[in-house]
Amino acid sequence: MSVFFHLLGQGVRDLFRAPWSLCMTIAAITLVSFLGGAFLMLVHNLDLQIGARQGNVQFQVYWQPQTTTEEVREVWAGLSSMEGVVNVRTFTPDQALGVLAESFQNSVDMEWMKGRSPLPPTALVECELPAEDGKKWAASMVERLRALPKVEKVSFNPLQVDLLTSWVGLTRMAFWPVTGFLLVVVALVVGNTIKLALLARREELEILRFVGASRAYIQFPLLVGGAFQGFLGAGLALGLLKLLHNGIEEMFNVPPLWMTISFLPPLHCLVIVATLAAVGVLSSLVALRN
């Protein structure tokens, strides 16, 4: 057991014998993993959006500007009970003003308009689209919403769903080729580093062989080195990805998208780290065999 831990430590220590080579390799793995992780995050968020909106259609209902909040609240209370409605978000004129200010990233001062907002009360009504004759049903829903007291305008965009579905189809089609390509790049980078390490330490490894070191004794530290490089690269890439996520998390949470970008779930992060460590081991193994 002590030999095992000794070799484990040896594998990591040996990498630091060529610190520049290690830095370059880690940088390359981090960059490739970051690109792969960003792609995964895109797919993950599109999946979330499609999951939340697939088969649903959103209607935006605008009331006449002079409608009072009391009048409109009565109507809003009844919206959820309408047939096919799954979610309702309402905005008083002041709330709508707040959202508008947010969409300008609060760079425009709208505080002075509070209490006398020119915007009308609005509601975002999300409905489940029936499997058959969706367009006809949507048109009838528009009529029903228009018939509500003091409603001025109703709009909806069924294309939104079609667009999302197309995006997800495209990313799913590209998922394996892109992932495969990125993994091959990582494998080549790690494999070449191990090959260079083998060349630099050829004499030392030859001596180890001649004094009776088993194949496992010689190869295990190199495999540990490969795994460590993959692990470290993946860890750094996830750290960078988290920084990117913090920057763009709320970027699309504005009308009409209302999208909060989610970070990769812990399981995905674990899979990325484990996959890169495994690729590191495999490419080291191939380098050793060659």
């Binding site: 001596i207 001649f210 194949r215």
Partner: peptide, 22 residues
């Protein structure tokens, strides 16, 4: 086989002409 040659080398030691030391 190659993978078992370390067993032979544990019973047979060699002093090389060019030393082969680290």
């Amino acid at each position: 086989p190659e993978r078992r040659k370390h067993l032979l080398r544990r019973d047979v030691s060699v002093v090389f002409q060019d030393f082969k030391i680290l």
